[in-house]
């Protein structure tokens, strides 16, 4: 038991030298570089994370602006499309109107022409009918006036007719 609980000067001496030596040596050769590298690595990782965050933010910003651009382009397209459509509509309706107007003018002109032609035809017909009637009446009168009796009869008939009037 005395061996267990006693403190040997020699062992203390060696232990002090050895431990302090290993402490100094390791501090210089191992812990220094290891801690340095670990610190640098941690800083590197933190930096990388920060950069990744920044990139992400930049990305989302870019994406937002892209979306804006896209929306704008879409709006432009819609606007242009609707404008073009309106213009086309207008042009079409204008053309249709013009055509209709022209058509109605033609129709009106034709109607006038027809009316004129009709009137001309009617008056022509009337003239011819009048001529025919005169010729008929002439031949009839000639026939009737050839005979006194008949002339008489006719006179009276005419007198009758006109007299009534």
């Amino acid at each position: 038991m005395e061996g267990l609980l006693s403190v040997s000067v020699g062992t203390v001496f060696w232990a002090s030298i050895a431990f302090i030596a290993v402490l100094v040596l390791l501090k210089k050769m191992a812990w220094g570089p290891i801690m340095q590298t670990l610190k640098e690595r941690e800083e590197g990782i933190a930096d990388a994370l920060r950069k990744a965050d920044a990139a992400k933010e930049e990305m989302s910003k870019l994406q937002a602006s892209n979306e804006d651009l896209l929306r704008e382009a879409r709006n432009d397209r819609d606007r242009i499309m609707s404008e073009a459509k309106a213009m086309a509509d207008q042009m079409r309706s204008e053309a249709v109107g013009k055509a209709q107007k022209e058509a109605s003018a033609i129709i009106a002109k034709a109607q006038v022409e027809i009316e004129t032609q009709k009137q001309a035809a009617i008056s022509e017909l009337k003239n011819q009918v009048a001529d025919l009637s005169i010729q008929l009446a002439e031949s009839l009168l000639k026939n009737a006036l050839t005979d006194a009796e008949k002339q008489q009869a006719l006179n009276s008939a005419l007198i009758n007719e006109f007299g009534k009037n």
Binding site: L26, M29, A30, W31, G32, P33, T37
Partner: peptide
């Protein structure tokens, strides 16, 4: 052993 091990490890780090 400690010096050998940790020196080689430190070298790897560096």
């Amino acid at each position: 052993l400690m010096i050998i091990i940790f020196r080689s490890v430190a070298k790897k780090y560096s």
